[in-house]
Each structure stands twice: as structure tokens, then as C-alpha cells.
Design a protein around this nucleic acid. Structure first.
Length: 819
RNA sequence: GCCCAGGUGGCGGAAUUGGUAGACGCGCUGGCUUCAGGUGCCAGUGGGGGCAACCCCGUGGAGGUUCAAGUCCUCUCCUGGGCACCA
């Protein structure tokens, strides 16, 4: 007797070849058939897949295969987010052009994805560093320029003067450049922006319609940061200048005791011109980091500018200060400070001995105000505000806003925290910005006929500045007709540009005459988008913005790109995120070699629900492998079993033992369908199938009907597991006597008749404490149930001698006796 | 600083609508099978008490609502994540 062993590598190779030869996952538009576009965030080709990728793509593949079994026309594409900073770092380290490094990585990672058995339509593969891809991004940028959606303005960056480069926040380590060690400066340079703020209101409003995790929607709402307030104009003493500030609390206007402007504000710069101390302070601020987290946690510092503003209501003189916590790119870059009613202003006022003037009093006894300790930031009733005394904060808001507007000293404004999207990067490895500059420095778009502007790939890369900034053959242009000299823009696009529309390009990746074609109307929007929670704000907001720009350009229908979103949790090991720097990575390659792709897929889906962090466990992987081996053996034992007289299952003629087994089967089908299809809790679906398989292992086959029942159970187990572990299930499906490929099979529906039970277990509590479990007929009357409950010996022990006050009955579940 | 998520056995996790806490898996303990094992099978496994039936305690902490709380409310402690040039 030769036992057939589970050899994952053999069968996985065979099954993958079957899919490839049959083009199993090629997605073809089929009007009339319901489509399902399942997209996972495409990877940055960093070298090799990490566990986060494996998890992300397994989740997507399981859902895609499940949807396909429901009969839908499924599109599951894959591509490469190929531009980015790591390629530049690697180029410096290995003296290899970023393009070569990136393409080598893609070849390797593509093979890893194949090896994991993901059902991608590889004919749609795209790579963002391909000029045939980014040419359309350059083209759309031209349209945005036409519409005024793209514009040039100055912005602050982290500048490393040694490496002659701009640094990402993550490259600034304790105020110094990560490579050069040079002190990082804040520098203002002209850069390109996209007017995402034009869409702020729509981006905010349409969040409500999206089937996205609530935390992600909250993060986007906060990021957009809509507020209603008043822009107030303060005259600057003995000048004709006006200092504009934005406040959401005009009701506190009479409590202003100083003004604070950002270090980059024109008033600060002007005042510093003849004040060396002030100049030193501004220079100091230049050196501190620009991120919001840094600004919020630094020690609040400031200096008076020596000039005053005139209060628009009281005409009082208000000193103007410069402060390091005021952000130049939010609001007007200046704030009116009301120490009594804003905690930050309060702390600043205490530190610099500025007046604290209360103008809002608690509206009732439930509010507490201790101005000797902290600001009173709640809304209340106005005091010490002259004509406005006695008004509530809300009434005062309106009264003051109306009065200021009437006097031309203020205007109601909706403000957004959202800032325009800065898309210029002073880096090499990105899509060139399709702009040329005249000798006078005036920018002009590159004509469509000259697109794409191709990034030179054969470059030597030393890390000091961008190579194309040193290549006259790239940036020097002479108009062949007029002889006029132009300079090509050498900045490249933020890589979020490419990832903002790739989901749409997958619909028509081979369209060479246009960015998109009508196939996009069939596939879009993406029905389910899956990726890391770390993209909750930027990528997802930019892609939504891009979709609306494309919509307004007539390229896509619909307002939103991603109908449903699934954010997957991190992969941890020893409680920390897996990362090279922590040295706690597990290479998927080693695991696949050791156990096969199915084991890796099963473990990743079983260890935790997809949106939670997943704690890596080598022992858990072994457990997954053991389960697959057990499944393999169970099926082969069944197939090999010799049973006299093969019979079809006669569901109506089963005995109690058989009915119980069959009920468990159909309960499991129902649970797995709900878990996989609706809840996305694959771990509990797998657990349910494990229980079923455990039960089938204990189930004694006594005759032909038992054998037939076993056949039904095992076929169901293999079908349910097939989206998760598709290779082994492909083989076992055929071992069970089927001639079809399981990838083309349909999902099962639970039979309600098989799920009906004659008896049910009732939990009996006395005063909420569990005292008995009773098995009763499903159709027992409530009165009969009460009677049975009170006859139970253990229940009696706790009830006897006491008065029954109440009897709570939850039908089919529970009885609680209250004594 | 602000925002978000999460604290349940030795571990990963389950408990879906307020109704049996700990499903399933790992690990561990004991036993059987095997020349052997990164094998298979059986039994046990939150803490405490009891020969047992059972009983008491138990979901980070403190209060509260309820017949009933891991789940709802208030306060609090801890951990992880994000905060605009990483993707």
C-alpha cells in the first residue's frame, strides 16, 4: 500500500502551469455580466516581497477567487509603483542606475508573486517608470495647467547644502541630513502645486457615501479640516498695511492681547531687516524642522516685532509678535492671540508676561473656569466685550462677523486645513514635469505632440544633486524655428502622481492614443481596494482628487474611484513591525521553499483578521502545514475507502447521526460564506472548516450513505478552502472524482432544510449566573420551558426558598431566573 | 501637542444585535503508535477549591447602567500607528 504524500512544490508548479496555459485569470470586458474589480495597492519594487505584501495580496486573491466563484467577471491586475527614493539610495550604494536596479527588482518580485499563485491578469501589468505610462500623467498635467489647476509658487523645503538636495522629513535626523550630516535649512524655492483645495468640499462631502472603514474617513475629514470662521483685518499702526488673521472664534475678539505671525511672514521679515536680534531669531526658526509634529512639540518661543496692530473694534494697540509655532502655510500665516481662551496662546502669554483678558464666561455651573491654571476654551457667554456682553458664543460669532463685514474689516470664510498638493520634487528618479522655461524664467507647457518627456535613464549617480540637473543635453532646448533658448524643468513629479491613477490605467493599459478608453467605463470604479492603513490619508486622498480631475476632463464616469476599502494591518514579529532596520524580517521565499505557497497563504489568513496587526509565528506556520497535510490525507483516505454499493446521498432518509453531521456541514457553509463574503474574517471561516474536518475525522463510516455524506462534506471543504489554498484544492477536487477545474466551480449555498434541528440547548441563569444547560425541543412553548427550567436540580438549589421576581426568556437561547 | 487604533489564557486569536468568556490554532503535560522523527492518533490544559456533582474568582484599572456587560456610559493607565518630500 503506497500512501500518497502531500508534496506542495510538485502540485503547486503543476497547478500554476494549468492556470497559465488556460489563461484562467485573463479579464475580458463582458457587458451584461456583473463585474468585480479587486485591486491591491501595487508594490514599490524594493527588491523582494516582504510579509506585508504577501498578506495584502493574499487577502486580495482570496476575495477575487471568492467573487469569481459567485459568478462575477473579476479583474485583478498587478503592477509596479516604480519611481521613488529608495532607488536613488540604492544607486548611490551599488553604483547602479536607478532604472536598472528597479527593473531587476521587478523581474525578481514578479516571479515571487507567480510562485504564490495569485490570480492576476498579467496581460495588464504596468510599470510607472515606463514612459508609455507617465506620458499620460504629463498630458493630464497639461490639462490641469490649461485649467489653472496647476500653478507655480514658492514653498519651504528641508535643504541639505552639502548634498545639494531636498530632504524628506524622514531623512532629517535630529536636524541634520541623513547622509551628509549637514544642518538642515528651511529654504523657500518655487515649486509646482495642484489645486486640490478646489475640490476640498467635494472630497469632504463624498466621504459619507463611501463604504470605507470609519477611522480612515475620520482621518481624511481631519486632514481636510474644514472650519468656519472670520478673516479679520487689523490695521498696522502708522502704516497703510493690513494684518489679516483667520479665527474660528470671533466671539473672543475683544480678548486679543497680542498678534503672532509666522517667521516667514512679510511683517516679520521686514521688521528683522533693521533688527539683528530679530534676524537671529528668524534664522533660528529656519533651522528647526518643518513637520507639524515637530512644530507642536517645540518650546513656544517668540519675539516682539516692535510694531502694533490696531484692534478693529476697541481701537486698542495690540503688539505684534513673531512666534515659532505659527505656520506660514495655514490660514494667513498669522493669528490673533486670545490667551484667556486658547491654551497655546495662554502658555505663550504666561511665558512672556502678556495680558490674559477674559471675555467668555461659563454659560452654566457645569462649566469650570480657572484662568490662573489654564485657558477657558469652551464656548460660553460674552463678558467685557462692550456692546456684545451677554451674547452666547454662537450669537457673538454672528454679531461680530456681521459688524466686521459691514465695516469692511472682516469677512466670513470657510477655511480648510488641506493645503494645495506640492508635486515638484528636486529628485532624479521620477516622471519629468513637462514644462519648459523661457530665458526670462516664464514657464510654458511642453506641447502634447512632444510628450512624453522621457527621463534619461543612463545616468551616473553620486547623490549630490539630481543627475539631470547636470545634463545640458537634457535641459537645454533651442526652438528650431525661432532659435529661442529654453530651459527644461528638471524637477520631477511626486511619486504619488503615478499611484493616483494607475487603478484606472489597468482598465486599458495598452491604450496608446489616450490616457483611458471606454473599457474604463466597464471596470470602474474599483469595487474593493485593499492596502495598508498607512495610506489612509495621502495616497487615498490624492487618488480621489485625481479621479475627480479625470471626471471633469471626461475621462471617467462616477465621482469616486474606490467603492469599498479594506485596510490591512501590519505584520509584526516580537511585537514590532517587521523591518530591515529592526532585523526581524521573515523572507517569504524561505517559507515557500520550506512549506509551499498554500501553507504561507493559509497561515497569513488564519493568524488574524485582515484589518488587525498580525503577529508572526513560525510555529503557527507549521500548524498551517499540518492542517493541509491532514486535509490531504483525509481526502485520500476517503477516496481509497472500499465501500460496498456506491450510492448517491439520500438527504431525506438520513438517521440522526447522519443528520447531525450534515447540519454541521451546512452550518459551516453558511458561516464561511458570511465570514468570507461579508465580514472578511477569514480566520473564523478557516476555524469553522477546521472544526468540520475534525468532526469528519471522527465520523464513523458504516455504510454507503455515510460514504456519500463524506463525499459531500469533503467536496464542500475543498470548495470553501479553494480561494485560500487554491493549489491543493485544485488537486483534491480532481482526486474526489471531478473532471472540472475547481477554479471554474461555483460557491456553495447552505441548504436550510439540512440546518433545521429538532432540539436546541437552552442556557439557564439564576440572577445572571450560569446554572444549567438544558436540551429542549426546538418548538417548545414558553410555558413548558419555564416549567422544565424550574425542575432542574441545580436551578432548584439556587431558587428554593426564595421568591421568583422575574423570569426572562430569550427564545431558543436563554432563561434567566431573577430571585 | 493633535488625531486614530488597540489592551481577553503561556502565545495568535474567538465571542457577529447586551445573553454559555476562551471557538480554532500554537505551545505545554500525560498516554499510545513508530527503529527513528520537524510523524500520526487519544486525553488534558484560565486561576483557586472539591473524590465528585459542582462552587468561587476572572476580559488593563476604578466607578456606573442593566435581570444580564469583554460588549454600553464616565474617568484613568498602558501599547502601537499617523501628522504633508518614505511608499
Amino acid at each position: 500500500m503506497t500512501e500518497q504524500l502531500y508534496k506542495p512544490h510538485e502540485i503547486e508548479t503543476q497547478v500554476q502551469q494549468y492556470w497559465e496555459h488556460n489563461d484562467s485569470f485573463k479579464a475580458v470586458e463582458s457587458p451584461g455580466q456583473e463585474k468585480f474589480y479587486c485591486l491591491c495597492m501595487f508594490p514599490y519594487p524594493s527588491g523582494r516581497l516582504h510579509m506585508g505584501h504577501v498578506r495584502n495580496y493574499t487577502i486580495g486573491d482570496v476575495i477575487s477567487r471568492y467573487q469569481r466563484m459567485l459568478g462575477k467577471n473579476v479583474l485583478q491586475p498587478m503592477g509596479w509603483d516604480a519611481f521613488g527614493l529608495p532607488a536613488e539610495r540604492a544607486a548611490i550604494k551599488h553604483s547602479l542606475p536607478p532604472a536598472d536596479w528597479t527593473r531587476e527588482n521587478i523581474v525578481y518580485m514578479r516571479e515571487q508573486l507567480r510562485r504564490l499563485g495569485f490570480g492576476y491578469d498579467w496581460s495588464r501589468e504596468l510599470t510607472t517608470c515606463d514612459p508609455q505610462y507617465y506620458r499620460w500623467e504629463q498630458w493630464l498635467f497639461g490639462r490641469m495647467l490649461d485649467k489653472g489647476l496647476a500653478y507655480k509658487a514658492k514653498a519651504v523645503v528641508n535643504w541639505d547644502r552639502v548634498d545639494q538636495t531636498v530632504l524628506a522629513n524622514e531623512q532629517v535626523i535630529e536636524g541634520r541630513g541623513w547622509r551628509s550630516g549637514a544642518t538642515v535649512e528651511r529654504r523657500e524655492i518655487p515649486q509646482w502645486f495642484l489645486r486640490i483645495t478646489d475640490y476640498a468640499e467635494e472630497l469632504l462631502q463624498e466621504l459619507d457615501q463611501l463604504d470605507w472603514p470609519e477611522p480612515v474617513k475620520i482621518m481624511q475629514r481631519n486632514w481636510i479640516g474644514r472650519s468656519e470662521g472670520v478673516e479679520v483685518a487689523f490695521a498696522v499702526e502708522s502704516t497703510d498695511k493690513v494684518l489679516r488673521v483667520y479665527t474660528t472664534r470671533p466671539d473672543t475678539l475683544l480678548g486679543v492681547s497680542y498678534m503672532a505671525v509666522a517667521p516667514e511672514h512679510p511683517l516679520a521679515i521686514e521688521a528683522a531687516a533693521c533688527n539683528p536680534k530679530l534676524q537671529a531669531f528668524l534664522a533660528d526658526c529656519q533651522r528647526s524642522a518643518v513637520s507639524e509634529a515637530a512644530v507642536e512639540t517645540i518650546e513656544k518661543q517668540g519675539m516682539p516685532l516692535g510694531i502694533n496692530a490696531i484692534h478693529p473694534v476697541s481701537s486698542e494697540k495690540i503688539p505684534i509678535w513673531v512666534a515659532n509655532f505659527v505656520l506660514i502655510n495655514y490660514g494667513t500665516g498669522a493669528v490673533m492671540a486670545v490667551p484667556a481662551h486658547d491654551q497655546r496662546d495662554y502658555e505663550f502669554a504666561k511665558a512672556y508676561h502678556l495680558p490674559i483678558k477674559q471675555v467668555i464666561a461659563p454659560a452654566g455651573p457645569e462649566q469650570e473656569c480657572h484662568l490662573d491654571e489654564c485657558a477657558f476654551v469652551e464656548k460660553g457667554v460674552m463678558v467685557s466685550s462692550g456692546l456684545y456682553d451677554g451674547l452666547t458664543s454662537a450669537e457673538g460669532f454672528n454679531a461680530i462677523a456681521t459688524d466686521l463685514e459691514a465695516q469692511g474689516r472682516g469677512v466670513r470664510r470657510v477655511n480648510y486645513r488641506l493645503r494645495d498638493w506640492l508635486v515638484s520634487r528636486q529628485r532624479y528618479w521620477g516622471a519629468p514635469i513637462p514644462v519648459i522655461n523661457s530665458s526670462a524664467g516664464e514657464p510654458a507647457p511642453v506641447p502634447d505632440a512632444h510628450l512624453p518627456v522621457v527621463l534619461p535613464e543612463d545616468v551616473s549617480f553620486d547623490g549630490v544633486g539630481s543627475p539631470i540637473k547636470k545634463m545640458p543635453e537634457f535641459f537645454e532646448i533651442t526652438d528650431p524655428e525661432s532659435g529661442e533658448k529654453w530651459t527644461r524643468e528638471t524637477d520631477t513629479f511626486d511619486t504619488f502622481m503615478e499611484s493616483s491613477w494607475y487603478y484606472a490605467r489597468f482598465c486599458s493599459p495598452d491604450s496608446h492614443g489616450a490616457m483611458l478608453d471606454q473599457r474604463a467605463d466597464y471596470w470602474l470604479p474599483v469595487d474593493l481596494y485593499i492596502g495598508g492603513i498607512e495610506h489612509a490619508i495621502l495616497h487615498l486622498l490624492y487618488a480621489r482628487f485625481y479621479h475627480k480631475v479625470m471626471r471633469d476632463e471626461g475621462l471617467v464616469r462616477g465621482d469616486e474611484p474606490f467603492t469599498r476599502l479594506l485596510t490591512q494591518g501590519m505584520v509584526l514579529k516580537d511585537g514590532a513591525k517587521m523591518s530591515k532596520s529592526k532585523g526581524n524580517t521573515v523572507d517569504p521565499k524561505d517559507l515557500i521553499e520550506k512549506y509551499g505557497a498554500d501553507t504561507v497563504r493559509l497561515f497569513v489568513m488564519f493568524a488574524a483578521p485582515p484589518d488587525q496587526a498580525l503577529e508572526w509565528s513560525d510555529a503557527g506556520v507549521k500548524g498551517a502545514y499540518r492542517f493541509l497535510r491532514r486535509l490531504w490525507r483525509r481526502v485520500h483516505d476517503h477516496v481509497a475507502a472500499e465501500v460496498a454499493g456506491q450510492q448517491d446521498l439520500n438527504a431525506a432518509g438520513l438517521d440522526k447521526r447522519q443528520k447531525d453531521m450534515r447540519r454541521l456541514l451546512h452550518d459551516t457553509i453558511a458561516k464561511a460564506s458570511d465570514d468570507i463574503g461579508r465580514r472578511y474574517t477569514f480566520n473564523t471561516a478557516i476555524a469553522a472548516v477546521m472544526e468540520l474536518l475534525n468532526a469528519v475525522g471522527k465520523y464513523e463510516v458504516r455504510g454507503a450513505q455515510d460514504h456519500a455524506l463524506n463525499q459531500e462534506v469533503l467536496e464542500a471543504v475543498v470548495l470553501i478552502l479553494s480561494p485560500i489554498v487554491p493549489h491543493i484544492c485544485h488537486v483534491l477536487w480532481q482526486e474526489l472524482g471531478n473532471t472540472t477545474a475547481i477554479v471554474d466551480e461555483r460557491w456553495l449555498t447552505a441548504d436550510p432544510r439540512a440546518r433545521m434541528a429538532e432540539s436546541v440547548q437552552i442556557v439557564v441563569q439564576v440572577n445572571g449566573k450560569l446554572r444549567a444547560r438544558l436540551k429542549v425541543a426546538t418548538d417548545i412553548s414558553e410555558d413548558a420551558l419555564r416549567e422544565v427550567v424550574l425542575l432542574d436540580a441545580n436551578v432548584k438549589r439556587f431558587v428554593d426558598g426564595k421568591k421568583i421576581r422575574k423570569l426572562i426568556v430569550v427564545p431558543g437561547k436563554l432563561v434567566n431566573v431573577v430571585v
